[in-house]
C-alpha cells in the first residue's frame, strides 16, 4: 500500500501542502483531483523523490521510500519530458534499463507497450517527429515500460483525443487488474468517475474528500427529482409540508429537491402524493463534478491563499 503521511511543503512563505495524507492499495486506481495549484503536482513530485517534503513521509508497504523502492515506480511528470532526438523504442528500452530491467526483457516490454498504444509503426522514429498526442502516449509508455508496481501519473489524459484516452485507459486498467497501484491527477471529472476506484479531492494543500466514487456520491444530502400532476406552485406547499426541505430546481411540473440527511424519504413521497399524482420520484445522486464544486467552494480568505499558492507552485514548476 502506498501511503502519503501528513506531507507538508512550503514554497517560501506559501504553503503548498498542508498535512496531506491518503493511501492507495495495489489493484486500485486512485483519482487525484483539485483546482489548479491545489498541490497535486507537488504531492506527486514528492512521491517520486524529485522534491523533498518539509515534513511527513511517503511509505510503500510500511517502509519509507528510498531510491531502491522508487525503482519499482513509474512516473509521468506534468511537464512531459523525453530526449527529443532519441528513437521511440530505443528511448523506452533505455528508461527500462535505468530501472534495472535486463536488455532482452526491456526490448520486448517496449515493443509490447508500443503495440498496445498503437505506436508500433513509429518505433524507430525520433520522439521529436511525433505529434503531441503520440508523444504523450510514448510518455505513458515510458512510465510503464519497467512494469512498475506503483504508477504516479500527472494529468496523463490531458490533450488526448477520445481514442487516445480509451487506449491509455485500457492499458492502465490492465495494469491495475494485474495488481498495480495507480494514482493519477486529472481535471476531466467524468473520466475520473468512470475509471477510478477511489478519488481524493485536494483543496489548498489539504485533502477534503477521500473515498470510493460511490461513497463520495453517497455522502451529500439526498436529492430527489419529483414530477407531480399539480398546478405550478406545488413546490412551495411541499416545502411547507416537509420540514427542512429545500428546492434546488423548480421547473413547473418537475422539481429537484434536497432533504436534510436524516429525513425520511417516504414522508416526502406521502407529502407529494397529497398534492397530486406523482409521475416520477427518483433519488438523484450528485455527479463527481457537482460534488467537486461543492467541496472546493470555500471562504474567500482561503480562496486567496490558494490562489497565491497556485502562483508560487507554477513559478516553481515553470
Amino acid at each position: 500500500m502506498l501511503e502519503l503521511d501528513r506531507l507538508s511543503r512550503r514554497y517560501g512563505d506559501v504553503v503548498a501542502l498542508d498535512d496531506l495524507s491518503f493511501a492507495v492499495r495495489p489493484g486500485q486506481m486512485y483519482g487525484f483531483v483539485g483546482t489548479n495549484g491545489a498541490g497535486k503536482t507537488t504531492a506527486m513530485r514528492i512521491v517520486l523523490g524529485v522534491l523533498e517534503p518539509h515534513s511527513g513521509e511517503v511509505r510503500w508497504n510500511e517502509a519509507p521510500l528510498n531510491q531502491d523502492i522508487r525503482r519499482e515506480f513509474g512516473y509521468m511528470p506534468e511537464e512531459r519530458g523525453l530526449y527529443p532526438k532519441m528513437q521511440v523504442h530505443e528511448h523506452l528500452v533505455y528508461l527500462a534499463r535505468l530501472h534495472g530491467v535486463s536488455g532482452i526483457t526491456a526490448t520486448k516490454a517496449a515493443s509490447d507497450l508500443l503495440e498496445a498504444l498503437a505506436l508500433s509503426e513509429r518505433a524507430s522514429d525520433r520522439i521529436e517527429s511525433l505529434s503531441l498526442g503520440n508523444q504523450q502516449r510514448v510518455q505513458l509508455a515510458a512510465a510503464l515500460v519497467h512494469e512498475p508496481t506503483v504508477m504516479v501519473l500527472d494529468e496523463p489524459f490531458s490533450g488526448l483525443d477520445p481514442m487516445g484516452v480509451d487506449s491509455m485507459a485500457a492499458v492502465l486498467r490492465a495494469r491495475v487488474d494485474a495488481g498495480a497501484a495507480v494514482v493519477f491527477s486529472s481535471h476531466q471529472l467524468e473520466l475520473v468517475e468512470r475509471l477510478c476506484d477511489a478519488v481524493g479531492i485536494i483543496r489548498a494543500g489539504r485533502l477534503v474528500a477521500d473515498g470510493t466514487v460511490d461513497e463520495l456520491r453517497g455522502t451529500g444530502a439526498p436529492r430527489y427529482r419529483l414530477d407531480v400532476g399539480a398546478p405550478p406552485g406545488w413546490t412551495a406547499s411541499l416545502a411547507d409540508a416537509v420540514p427542512g426541505l429545500s428546492v434546488v430546481e423548480d421547473g413547473g411540473r418537475t422539481a429537484l429537491v434536497e432533504l436534510p440527511p436524516s429525513a425520511d424519504d417516504q414522508a416526502l413521497l406521502d407529502a407529494a402524493r397529497a398534492l397530486g399524482t406523482v409521475h416520477q420520484f427518483t433519488p438523484v445522486r450528485p455527479t463527481l463534478a457537482e460534488l467537486f464544486r461543492s467541496v472546493v467552494a470555500e471562504p474567500a480568505g482561503a480562496e486567496r491563499a490558494g490562489a497565491e499558492k497556485a502562483g508560487a507552485e507554477k513559478a516553481e514548476a515553470a
Binding site: 517520486l48 523523490g49 515506480f73 519530458g81 523525453l82 530526449y83
Partner: peptide, 17 residues
Amino acid sequence: VEEKSSRVVEVILATIP
C-alpha cells in the same frame, strides 16, 4: 540544458541519482 528544458531530467532522476 537539453535535459532540463525537455524536462526529461525529472524522469531520469526519479530512477537514478
